[in-house]
Design a protein around this nucleic acid. Structure first.
Length: 886
RNA sequence: GGGGUUAUAGCUCAGUUGGCUAGAGCGCACGAUUCACAUUCGUGAGGCCGUAAGUUCAAGUCUUACUAGCCCCACCA
């Protein structure tokens, strides 16, 4: 016997995975219609968390399902340099070592982080293997691979030429701790209690004052105006005059702007264009000067005044309030709840800062994306996310792609002394010379989403192959002077020589499966950049999964200590159990709890399957080989005919579920068919007689059904069977033999009989029971089977039956028991009669309703009638039986 | 402020275009048993499907309002 008594996942899983890798089972077959998924690249130097566990399970199910279906399937793995995330980790390492980023050049830092990441890289890939990911390892892409950078620069250059990337001095979100700017979407807004202070600004003329309300008094040092609403009558007479800014005595004008809310505070707002996004816009409209009073280090600048320079923002606030106490602070401060932006990594308050940065003009990109979405070119699961995305795109503002961190793709832009910017990809040089002019490199790096937004066509090498985009050009490098129609040429620049990539057939992707919370930062970018660079949507479907919460529905977090590590679950229950468990009880887009009981159920299913295999192999014998071709070897017994029908129906249901991304339902169906149909009925019945070849076919079919969900146990069994010599992972579906529907229906009748008998026997006192029947061919022909399934001591045909008539079975059968026992059973019978009578009267009432009989479909009406007749018969038999009990 | 989403058994969740008796896993109760499996087998008890109204022959499912929760977006000094 090749099958050990118990299935030990930890023992078999690595063996199965090694087999797959050795056989190159995950490489695309090159045959059939392409099917492609690209993995959202996990952090190269991190560990996988439970969310990755879900991603991997879902994407692997899709991949294996389609591979089994004969598609030319690829699942492209990736590893993310995770720009800012990794940088934060590395900066902490530097800190631990007692040094800081400021002691190294950009090149040194880049090299250090590279080594740091590569030293830690690999864990993540091992963990993906432990999860059973059947991804094509030879096609793995790291987000800093040469081909990534090459494509990203092409895109950058094209966008620069098209005027979609521009240099702008704008107000950006800035973390003074990490000393980098962020995109709007990276800022974490929290409602916080703040204080609102009223400060009197005296008019320059010396007569009167205007009181402004602010939550940030320290920024008044950078005020360049006071604004009121143009319709505000209270201040009409003051508009155009100037005030003397307290503490600095600078004169600033009183202006009007629609932005001001008359209802809020005093209705007069101090305007600090350098440190508030709204004020910045007001400043632009009114040509106000910018005075930067907070530096990039979070300290007050010299412009803030001698006595404030060098103070932190909070220290400056204290001092300003103190200095104002002499009179300008006009009233008691008030509390208010307002939203404050924080760095999503360290929690520092985000300072709006005016900086020179690279921006993407998103309007044209978003417009095209919206059109594609409205045309239904991409289907979303759940569907509502499509319209959510459209709304987001409609309101999208220009995108800051500059980051002041060394770990990332360098921005390929150089500036001359005269302030002229040019594109050049020689980023390894600090200065370059073009036509005798020296240009200096911009030291910033690109926002990671700018490169990962191009992931679908980068990973499939699409730009290197599409003949439509391959318009050879010689414009290797562009400058802003000739920003004409270069862009088309640029993309084709150095492609003409290269061979067409074999992966390009996989673009656009069939499905992009990812977390719902990166719909905006990632999915939106992929759609915009995909359309822009390839003229088509990057994927046909988007499936979004929600957060995996802890067992009580709480978000997992290190601080709460409720983090569940998928590797620990795998170590205890096995990878298959983890996959089955995490996929169950979960629907698209929904944040749902992780339930260990589902993992346990999954483990039990693996055990059940293992034991089915043990039973089958031992029944067939250790040297079994099928004698006939599988298709010809049809079912013989009633149970076999029934089971073949069930398997076919089950496969249809699972196919439909997967097509509609109903993973949990598909997994539930696998569980049901293996456990209930195969183990509980077919295997049990087969103990009373079976067709060996069919039994082998049934097992094979089950293994294929379950393989996408539980690849390890199914492959391990496949490898151990005496008659298989292939790899299950790369198998395709076989046809099931034909079956006889009448025989299948007869088996269902037997099932009903067995169930009724079991129920009745359960209610009766224990002991051996004999079943009597009069004329019943079904029972006659299946006497041994019924006896075995119900544990009856004997089944006999008699001419004069006696004992308890089992009316609810709908058959002429009796349990041979004495009157005394029957009497004890009377109450149960009465209860059952009552239930049936209730059903009868409900049916009668329904059929008495003319609206129902006239308007409901005839099929339903007929069903009601049939059901009524049947139940009335059983009821009358029960009444008859009860009357016989004395 | 805007948008999304959820409410079904003790717990975690299914329930697709309305169709009659609302399902699963785990848990619980009762019973069984040792030759596929105690990670087992059989049986059962648990549900005014959040509240109120409406549409319909028929509503867990559709509509409206309400209540409670969760999530996302947003610059309110």
């Amino acid at each position: 016997m090749k099958f050990a008594k118990t299935y030990e996942p930890n023992e078999y899983e690595p063996v199965a995975y090694a087999l797959w890798e050795g056989e190159e089972s995950f490489e695309p077959s090159g045959k059939g219609e392409p099917y492609s998924i690209v993995m959202p690249p996990p952090n190269a130097n991190g560990n996988l968390h439970i969310g990755h566990g879900l991603v991997t399970a879902l994407e692997d199910i899709l991949t294996r399902h389609h591979r089994l279906a004969g598609r030319d399937t690829i699942w492209i793995p990736g590893a993310d340099h995770a720009g800012f995330e990794t940088w934060v980790v590395y900066e902490r390492e530097l800190e631990k070592a007692g040094t800081s980023r400021f002691n190294f050049s950009r090149e040194e830092l880049y090299a250090q982080v590279w080594d740091f990441v590569h030293a830690k890289r690999g864990d993540m890939e091992l963990q993906l293997r432990a999860l059973g990911a059947s991804c094509s390892w030879s096609d793995l892409v790291f987000t800093l691979d040469e081909k990534v950078i090459k494509t990203v620069y092409k895109t950058f250059q094209k966008m620069w030429s098209d005027g979609l990337i521009y240099r702008g001095e704008k107000i950006v979100n800035y973390c003074t701790t990490h000393q980098t700017s962020f995109a709007d979407i990276e800022v974490d807004h929290k409602d916080e209690k703040g204080r609102l202070w009223d400060i009197a600004y005296p008019l320059s003329s010396g007569e009167g004052e205007i009181i402004v309300s602010t939550t940030r008094p320290e920024t008044m040092l950078g005020d360049t105006a006071v604004a009121v609403h143009p319709k505000d009558k209270r201040y009409k007479h003051l508009v155009g005059k100037t005030v003397k800014l307290p503490l600095t005595n600078r004169e600033i004008p009183i202006i009007t702007d629609e932005y001001v809310d008359m209802e809020f505070g005093t209705g007069a707002v101090k305007i600090t264009p350098a440190h508030d996004p709204n004020d910045f816009e007001v400043g632009e409209r009114h040509n106000l000067p910018l005075i930067q009073v907070i530096g990039l280090d979070g300290k007050m600048t010299r412009e803030a005044g001698e006595s404030y320079a060098g103070l932190s923002v909070l220290e400056a606030r204290e001092k300003v309030l103190k200095d104002l106490e002499s009179g300008a602070l006009s009233r008691e401060d008030k509390e208010l709840i307002h939203s404050v932006g924080h760095c999503y990594k360290c929690g520092s308050i985000i300072e709006p800062m005016v900086m020179d940065q690279w921006f993407v003009n998103v309007k044209p990109l978003a417009k095209r994306a919206i059109e594609a979405l409205e045309n239904g070119e991409i289907k979303f699961t759940p569907a509502s996310k499509g319209s959510v995305l459209i709304r987001y795109l409609e309101n999208l503002k220009d995108w800051n792609i500059s980051r002041q961190i060394p770990w990332g793709i360098p921005i390929p832009m150089f500036k001359s002394e005269a302030g002229e910017w040019i594109f050049d990809d020689r980023v390894e040089q600090e200065t370059i010379e073009v036509n005798g002019v020296t240009y200096t490199r911009d030291n910033d790096t690109l926002d990671t989403w700018f490169s990962s937004g191009q992931w679908p066509f980068i990973t499939t090498d699409y730009l290197d192959s599409d003949p439509n985009l391959d318009k050879a050009g010689d414009a290797r490098r562009g400058s802003p002077q000739n920003r004409s129609s270069q862009s088309e040429a640029i993309l084709g620049a150095d492609r003409a020589a290269g061979p067409a990539s074999s992966l390009s057939r996989f673009y656009p992707l069939d499905v992009m499966e990812t977390a719902a919370d990166i719909l905006f930062p990632w999915v939106s970018r992929m759609i915009m950049l995909g359309l822009y660079c390839t003229d088509q949507v990057p994927f046909k479907h988007v499936y979004l999964h929600g957060l995996v919460l802890d067992a009580h529905g709480q978000k997992m977090s290190k601080s709460k200590g409720n983090v569940i590590n998928p590797m620990e679950i795998i170590a205890e229950y096995g990878s298959d159990a983890f996959r089955l468990g995490i996929v169950s009880s979960r629907s698209a887009g929904q944040n749902q709890a992780f339930s260990l009981s589902k993992v346990i159920a999954g483990r039990n299913l693996c055990n059940k399957l293992w034991n089915i295999a043990r039973f089958v192999q031992s029944t067939l014998g250790d040297d079994f080989k099928p004698t006939k071709s599988k298709v010809d070897d049809g079912p013989i017994s009633l149970a076999e005919n029934w089971l073949v029908g069930r398997l076919a129906a089950s496969k249809r249901k699972i196919d439909a579920d997967i097509t509609h991304y109903r993973f949990a339902e598909a997994a539930e169906e696998v569980y049901r068919v293996v456990w209930n149909d195969v183990a509980d009925w077919y295997i049990e019945a087969s103990k009373m007689g079976n067709s060996p070849d069919l039994m082998a076919t049934v097992l094979e079919f089950c293994l294929k059904l379950i393989h996408p969900f539980a690849p390890f146990v199914s492959e391990t069994i496949w490898q151990n069977l005496s008659w298989t010599d292939s790899v299950l992972c790369t198998e395709t579906w076989q046809q099931l033999p034909a079956y006889n529907k009448e025989k299948a229906a007869e088996f269902e009748q037997l099932q009903q009989l067995v169930s009724e008998l079991r129920l009745t026997l359960n209610e009766l006192p224990s002991g051996k029971k004999k079943l009597l029947y009069k004329d019943d061919n079904l029972i006659e022909n299946n006497r041994e089977l019924v006896k075995f399934l119900t544990r009856l001591s004997e089944i006999e045909q008699v001419s004069k039956p006696q004992g308890l008539h089992l009316a609810t079975t709908g058959r002429e059968v009796w349990l041979d028991i004495d009157q005394k026992t029957i009497k004890t059973y009377k109450a149960d019978l009465e209860a059952r009669l009552k239930t049936i009578q209730n059903e009868v009267s409900a049916l009668k009432a329904r059929l008495a309703n003319e609206s129902y009989t006239q308007k409901a479909p005839a099929r339903l009406v007929q069903e009601s009638k049939d059901s009524l007749t049947e139940k009335e018969q059983i009821a009358s038999k029960l009444i008859n039986e009860l009357s016989n009990i004395t």
